[in-house]
Amino acid sequence: MVMHDLTGAFAPVVTPFLPDGSTDTSRFIAHCRWLIDQGAGLAPFGTNSEANSMSAGERMDLLAALIAAGLPAARLLPGTGACSAPETAMLTRHAVANGCAGVLMLPPFFYKGISDDGLYGWYADVIARVGDRRLRLYLYHIPALSGVPIAHAVIERLLRDFPGIVVGIKDSSGDWDNLSRMLERFPTLAVFPASESLISRSRPLGARGCISATVNVNPGRISRLVKEWNTPGGAALQAEVDAVRQVVQGFPMIAALKDILAAGRDDEAWRRVRAPLTGLSDAQAETLHASLRGLGFRL
């Protein structure tokens, strides 16, 4: 596994589907290649990838296809979280074997109200099952959806007991106080906010960039902002990406991202989502695209 500090804007890559509901490998690879060409990194099988509506086999097959297609493993941070430690370890071992830069790992998200000891024990179990010093693990803190917050006390224990293995975290809490305290308390931890709107506030404190849904449709501008936030044009660039983010997050996020890709590429196939999700209504899509046109946005 590549050993280096990840920085930049990463896309939790949206997953295209074929008419029969199976994953669309060709479109997936093409989209990932476009994101890389725009300067972004790839976090496939994240929340906005519909990963929790996919089987472990589908996820591993798509990851293997990316590697076989020559996508750079050094810019790959696949999501490997599942409810069980054995399944999570299986997905993680596969990512390690394929040379990915790291893995993004949800906590076990079925049981609620679990103790810090229980959560620590689950991550320790996964690490032991993987059994590979090449593993680079990025925790995924998204309590609004997982229902399982990753407390600072748990992070501290994992960093102490697994140095060089537990190396980062994606903070999707939306809580600036939590994010800023995490950056202050854990200066060696690679922290990625979940929104580009926090780049100019968090980069001075040591954040590495962002892992954001809207990198799927605005990769070039967000990638530039990670690098240029403190340049003379940084404030204007921040305002520009904020405006796009505000529009898109006003709709069901996955459906909106896919509708933007479908319209921008003149490819209706991109509108397909996997049940239980549904696509945008005609009225929603019309409002979304009118708002983006008003900003001068183009894919």
Results as ranks from 00 to 15, higher is better:
residue 82 A to I: 06
residue 37 D to N: 12
residue 196 E to A: 15
residue 66 L to P: 01
residue 267 D to T: 07
residue 153 A to I: 12
residue 286 E to F: 09
residue 288 L to C: 06
residue 208 R to C: 13
residue 221 R to P: 02
residue 11 A to C: 15
residue 278 T to S: 10
residue 34 W to F: 12
residue 32 C to A: 15
residue 290 A to L: 12
residue 251 F to M: 04
residue 179 L to K: 00
residue 295 L to Q: 09
residue 150 I to C: 06
residue 140 Y to P: 02
residue 166 V to E: 05
residue 39 G to F: 14
residue 196 E to F: 11
residue 252 P to E: 04
residue 160 R to M: 06
residue 56 A to D: 11
residue 256 A to F: 11
residue 271 R to K: 14
residue 260 I to N: 06
residue 179 L to R: 00
residue 165 I to A: 06
residue 37 D to G: 07
residue 178 N to Y: 11
residue 157 R to Q: 11
residue 116 D to C: 05
residue 167 V to F: 06
residue 240 E to F: 01
residue 170 K to C: 07
residue 40 A to D: 00
residue 181 R to L: 14
residue 214 T to K: 01
residue 257 L to S: 03
residue 195 S to M: 13
residue 61 D to G: 09
residue 163 P to A: 05
residue 37 D to V: 02
residue 119 L to C: 05
residue 187 P to F: 05
residue 6 L to D: 01
residue 220 G to T: 13
residue 174 G to D: 05
residue 69 A to M: 05
residue 146 S to E: 00
residue 170 K to W: 08
residue 281 S to M: 08
residue 127 I to G: 12
residue 118 G to N: 07
residue 257 L to H: 06
residue 119 L to T: 01
residue 217 V to E: 03
residue 265 R to D: 10
residue 112 K to L: 04
residue 22 S to L: 09
residue 248 V to I: 15
residue 205 L to W: 14
residue 56 A to F: 04
residue 162 F to K: 11
residue 191 V to C: 01
residue 141 H to W: 04
residue 259 D to L: 08
residue 31 H to Q: 11
residue 96 V to N: 10
residue 118 G to H: 12
residue 7 T to Y: 12
residue 17 F to Y: 15
residue 98 N to Y: 06
